[in-house]
Nucleic acid binder design. Structure first.
Length: 931
RNA sequence: GGGCAUGUAGCUCAGUUGGUUAGAGCACCGCCUUGAUAAGGCGGGGGUCACUGGUUCGAGUCCAGUCCUGCCCA
């Protein structure tokens, strides 16, 4: 062992390397739950609220997620965005309470419950549905808390709470009072097997063979050239013909009218067919267009408003035009039975057709069908008889077997029918204009959201608010002995009061006599069996939550949900609020896009458990594997106003940013290990700045520069938060950390921090600067990295949570950009120097920068900043041992191997190494520092 | 089919009122460092700015049309 070795070791011990217990490895998965437990035990959310009491308020109203299933990444994104807003508003000086909520009623839950156990009594369905909802509320609440979302988690609002349900009924009563509710028939999916209305989700598609027939309708008073002509319709449901009230043509399609002859029978008829369907029609029926006479040609719009004779009933069918008419099947003329089809209903309503639905609960014809011999007979059994009538009347042109996918009841397995039943509606037209005006009082982010909702409100039909379901809020309506609905809001209010104390189960548990007596109606009155559309539930939250909670108010400052809510919650909330109080329930509405997979396809909850389950999409997978802060950083990094592409690989990219930020914090903290006494405990002064103006003048250029940069970062981040642009905050900080701190400031100041004497003023200035930077960044990141920022804050020597802090205010001392201007010139020179050094390095002439002698040539013009006459600062900035400056034609740098001896301590190659007897292997600065 | 969006490097995104050679992060390649070390630094490759046409001295940016993808409808 040589005598040199111990000396080397000694010098290494004199180097002030960073020292911190702040771990490089975040280990978020184990550490975060501990911090969360500490927050909860200390009542952090309540303390934040208490501290903020009296400040200006900011109310973000939580749109209630459905209490069904685990937290999907899309749900996590939305909830974290809400939390970013609430936390950043809190730190910006607002009192921002967050009351989370859940949407608890509705078909998906009822569907699951009923699927598990069939034939349950309504009260039992409701008990089980509530238990189901509560189970998932707990699961989701745990996830949201684990994600670091702050809020009043022990007192959320639930749409199944009796008080909430009572408010839903009161909202409905308000609609009644204003005369906005009416009852009318409308087609629904009906299972005659289960004798109930079904929802889309309860329908399964199976193969079914139906008769497909072509039927003639003779034109009445046709335009010239079409005398004696017949429209031909095609249908697979002959039983709906008794309810036929119209025929739809496409206004833009080409139709022909010509003479058709049946080869076998020799029968001849004048028929109207869409040109594009001619060939298929001829093949199917055997009726062939007479080639000797040119057919009439016209657009579908020609016949609009005309009429055709019903083939076997004494009435006419109105001819209307409709864009949903297709030319892929049929004849281009569509049989319309508004009581038996959704399209038919809508088009029929537009054109003033009646709703005829002569079918009872069991699927049998009623007297209304106009065919006495069919009354009481099941519709599917009547197809043949109706076809026989058509044949007898000569109206049947063809009859085939047709195999198609047809909806069936998931329970009784019977084919479903469309059948019109009485429903309750809200008359939108009565307050549509008011709603449209309210839309323009709202700030929509992004701005196109305004047009989106305006369009839907403008074109939406009346709101069908009744459902033939069990798991929901009952319509507080009664029928009199004649079956007429009693539309009296005072009665509904009485029901609401009863429900407020006893819950809506009472409606299902008690009988009609009890209820009639309670609300003061005569014996024989019956209560309505329907429930309210769940969009009334959540749409009433401005009444049931914002108006009720003393710490909230309406209109709320912000609603933020996925884009699908323009037609959903944003709209239902708007309509309810406008109807009830005449204004929008929100001042600003923000939308976030959907989480989609990397091929741009939507990832829905229903894909869970299928083949796609290979790609986990639930939030717990991510916070259990990577940590809650990682999910938060991801949410803050994405462009949430558009759809958000997602995959685990993509998610891991945010891990890189996280590591970068964390490692930088670690170095910064490590370099504060021997901070001047008092600094580490320095209470935040009123200006929120550690560096006082009077010190600023003495700061070295590089420190002044980084503080100027920090000043601009701070301003950009505050603006980013104010604009809800979290991505901007993240990218600003990431670029500052990576580009300015890591690559430049820390690299450059290492030499002072490690090798200068402990109390050297420029070393102390650097430490003060580092504290200023670290405190500022920690606060700026606190809304996003809720856990990590809190951890960092602790390591900065603070005893309480960073979440009780406010954002720093910009320190005007660093608003100027003199140092920044100087550094910009320095960086141009640096780029040239680095390229020259890199060439020498690749040529194996040198290794580290410190082994180079650099000759920098500056152009005659420019580079006039005084710093270019300050060789020590230039050497420090470029991290060089040996630099020579000359002026020449253009900016250039050349590199040679430096010949000075190497200082054992600071590793620079300097001429004064060896000039100190006490330390023959050190440079002057190091010899002095070691003493 | 309609309404509203969207389309810039392998991936995710910036690109201000049209104006030099279109930027960043991640990924990738090469080198250095081993005193931020399960880290850090330097250099580098990579884009017909979806497509077509137009306005203009000049278009990623403005106009028209087409296509892709998403949401909401039909």
């Amino acid at each position: 062992m040589s005598a040199e070795t111990p000396a080397k070791k000694n010098y290494k011990d004199t180097v002030r390397l960073p020292k911190t217990d702040f771990p490089m490895k975040a280990d978020l998965v184990t550490r975060e739950p501990l911090r969360l437990a500490k927050w909860e035990a200390g009542g952090l959310y309540q303390r934040i609220m208490k501290q903020a009491a009296g400040r200006p308020k900011f109310v973000l109203h939580d749109g209630p997620p459905f209490a069904n299933g685990d937290v999907h990444m899309g749900t996590a994104l939305n909830k974290v965005l809400k939390d970013l807003i609430v936390k950043s508003k809190t730190m910006a000086g607002f009192h921002a309470p967050f009351i989370p909520g859940w949407d608890c009623h509705g078909l998906p839950i009822e569907f699951k419950v009923v699927k598990e156990a069939k034939d349950l009594a309504p009260a039992e369905v409701r008990t089980r549905s509530e238990a189901y909802a509560r189970k998932f509320i707990d699961i989701q609440r745990q996830s949201f808390k684990r994600l670091g979302v702050f809020g009043d988690w022990e007192n959320p609002y639930l749409t199944l709470a009796p008080t909430y349900e009572a408010d839903i009924m009161r909202t409905f009563a308000k609609f009644l009072e204003k005369g906005l509710v009416y009852r009318a028939k409308r087609p629904v999916l009906w299972s005659y097997g289960a004798q109930t209305a079904l929802a889309e989700a309860e329908v399964e598609y199976k193969e079914k063979t139906s008769p497909a027939i072509f039927v003639t309708f003779a034109l009445v008073n046709p335009p010239p050239g079409l005398d004696g002509a017949n429209l031909v319709i095609w249908t697979t449901t002959p039983w709906t013909l008794p309810a036929n009230l119209g025929i739809a043509l496409h206004p833009g399609f080409d139709y022909i009218c010509g003479t058709f002859t049946h080869a076998a029978s020799g029968r001849s008829l004048k028929l109207v067919i869409a040109t594009s369907r001619l060939e298929a029609f001829q093949a199917a029926t055997g009726f062939v267009l007479d080639p000797t006479h040119a057919p009439e040609k016209f657009k579908g719009s020609l016949l609009n408003g005309g009429a055709a004779q019903h083939p076997f009933l004494p009435r006419r069918s109105k001819i209307i035009e409709a864009l949903f008419v297709t030319d892929d099947t049929g004849t281009g003329a569509v049989h319309m039975a508004p009581g038996h089809g959704a399209d038919d209903y809508i088009a029929g309503k537009e054109h003033g057709l009646k709703i005829l639905s002569p079918v009872d609960d069991a699927g049998c014809f009623t007297a209304e069908c106009g065919l006495p011999e069919f009354v009481g007979q099941h519709v599917f059994k009547s197809n043949e008889g109706i076809i026989a009538i058509l044949e007898g009347k000569g109206a049947l042109l063809g009859n085939e077997k047709y195999v198609h996918q047809y909806p069936h009841c998931w329970r009784s397995k019977t084919p479903i029918i469309f059948r019109a039943v009485p429903q309750f509606f809200i008359r939108i037209a009565a307050f549509r204009d008011e709603a449209l005006k309210a839309i323009d009082t709202v700030n929509w982010l992004p701005a196109w959201g305004r047009n989106r909702i305006y369009g839907t409100v403008e074109s939406r039909p009346d709101w069908c608010i009744s459902r033939q379901r069990t798991w929901g809020v009952p319509l507080p309506i009664f029928y009199d002995a004649e079956g007429q609905a009693i539309m009296d809001h005072t009665i509904s209010l009485k029901v609401a009061d009863a429900v407020e104390t006893h819950g809506t189960n009472l409606w299902f548990e008690k009988d009609d006599a009890f209820w009639s007596d309670l609300v003061g109606l005569p014996e024989g009155s019956k209560r309505c069996k329907d429930t309210l559309d769940v969009w009334i539930d959540s749409g009433s939250s401005s009444v049931a939550v914002l108006d009720r909670h003393p710490e909230l108010y309406c209109p709320a400052d912000v609603y933020i949900e996925g884009t699908d809510q323009h037609r959903g919650w944003f709209q239902s909330s708007l309509m309810v609020s406008v109807a009830v109080r005449g204004i929008a329930p929100y001042k600003t509405v923000i939308t976030n896009g959907f989480v989609v997979d990397t091929s741009g396809k939507k990832i829905s909850k229903s894909d869970q458990g299928t083949d796609k389950a290979a790609k986990p999409m639930t939030a717990d997978h991510y916070y259990n594997k990577y940590g809650g802060d990682m999910v938060r950083l991801w949410a803050a990094s994405v462009d949430y106003q558009n759809d958000v592409p997602f995959s685990e690989e993509l998610f891991q990219q945010t891990g890189e940013s996280y590591r970068r930020i964390r490692n930088t914090f670690r170095v910064l903290l490590g370099n504060l290990h021997d901070e001047e006494k008092g600094k580490e405990k320095n209470p935040v002064d009123p200006a929120n700045s550690v560096i006082l103006s009077k010190q600023a003048a003495d700061l070295p250029l590089i420190d002044r520069w980084i503080l100027e940069r920090l000043h601009s970062v701070l301003i950009d981040c505050l603006a980013g938060y104010a604009a809800y642009d979290f991505r901007k905050v993240v990218s600003t900080i990431t670029q500052f950390v990576s580009g300015d701190l890591s690559a430049l400031y820390i690299d450059i100041t290492k030499d002072r921090l490690y090798c200068d004497a402990a109390d050297n003023p420029r070393r102390r200035a650097t430490q003060a600067t580092i504290r200023e930077i670290t405190e500022t960044l920690t606060k700026l990141l606190a809304p996003i990295l809720a856990y990590t920022a809190d951890e960092t804050w602790e390591f900065l020597g603070h005893s309480d949570s960073v979440h009780l802090e406010a954002f720093p205010q910009p320190n005007s001392t660093f608003a100027s950009t003199e140092a920044t201007a100087a550094v910009e010139e320095l960086l141009k020179a640096r780029a040239v120097i680095q390229q020259a050094i890199e060439a020498a390095r690749q040529a194996k002439k040198i290794g580290s920068n410190l082994e180079a002698t650099v000759k920098l040539t500056l152009p005659e013009a420019g580079f006039t900043n005084p710093v270019f006459q300050d060789l020590p600062t230039l050497q420090e900035f470029f991290i060089l041992s040996d630099l020579h400056i000359t002026r020449g034609s253009e900016l250039a740098a050349s590199v040679e191997v430096c010949t000075h001896p190497k200082c054992e301590r600071c590793w620079k190659l300097l001429p004064d190494v060896g000039t100190h007897d006490a330390h023959p292997t050190l440079c002057g600065r190091c010899a002095e520092a070691v003493g």
